[in-house]
């Protein structure tokens, strides 16, 4: 079954098409959820709710944009709602949010595991903005609307996050120099 046939079947609320849709796209959407929500079980819950919402709203999909982007957007929004719902921290905790330290990050490599490790150590706002801007392709305006923050805040978070990426994933050459320095000092 092609993507178009699956969409048509889901629009007609065909059970087989719906099942095929879940089999075809759930892994992709699960990855989206995991990028936003570190906890695996919560990410699964979020995915389940997203799939239900997509199957209910699929009639509104007008086939103008890419289907994958459309379903990813719904999933991202669901993840953001989920994050808001589980966020029960106090005001003082928000104040104590600081930029993560960079000591260990010099050892990170630009590989799957390290990237995920890095993203999960980032503060929530940073993680969300990086994902939304870099991966999902949201504009700062859209990010500010979704998160209820200023557009300028979104920009500054991204700038700082990019600095952190550049710092954490330093070049191999730089690392050697640093390591040598360390050895020298010790």
């Amino acid at each position: 079954m092609t993507e178009g046939e699956i969409i048509l079947g889901c629009k007609a609320q065909n059970r087989i098409a719906q099942k095929l849709f879940v089999e075809e796209y759930s892994r992709y959407l699960f990855a989206v959820c995991r990028r936003y929500i570190y906890d695996q079980e919560l990410a699964k819950d979020c995915l389940q709710e997203s799939l239900v919402e997509i199957l209910q709203k699929i009639g509104k999909y007008n086939e103008e944009g890419k289907f994958k982007s459309w379903i990813a957007t719904i999933t991202v929004r669901k993840c953001l709602r989920q994050i808001k719902a589980i966020k029960k921290h106090q005001y003082t905790e928000m104040e104590s949010v600081t930029e993560p330290g960079c000591e260990d990050k010099t050892l990170l490599k630009l590989e799957h595991n390290d990237v995920m490790k890095f993203i999960n150590t980032l503060p929530e706002n940073y993680r969300i903005v990086i994902n939304m801007y870099l991966v999902e392709g949201f504009s700062h305006k859209e990010i500010s609307d979704e998160l209820g923050i200023n557009e300028s805040s979104s920009r500054s978070i991204l700038t700082r996050a990019k600095k952190m990426i550049n710092k954490a994933f330093e070049d191999e050459k730089m690392k050697v120099v640093y390591k040598n320095k360390k050895k020298l000092i010790s």
Binding site: R15, Q18, K19, V22, E23, S26, R27, F30, A31, R34, R35, K44, L47, Q48, E49, L51, V52, L55, L110, E111, H112, V115, M116, I119, I130, N131, L134, V135, K162, I165, N166, F169
Partner: peptide, 28 residues
């Protein structure tokens, strides 16, 4: 570096039991 970071992040993949997910979704 940022581009590579983005590509890795976009291609990230996780295991998932799709059968289990479908049964939960169909119930919902």
């Amino acid at each position: 570096k940022e581009q590579k970071f983005k590509d890795i992040l976009a291609d990230v993949d996780f295991d998932l039991d799709t059968e289990e997910m479908w049964s939960a979704v169909s119930n919902d």
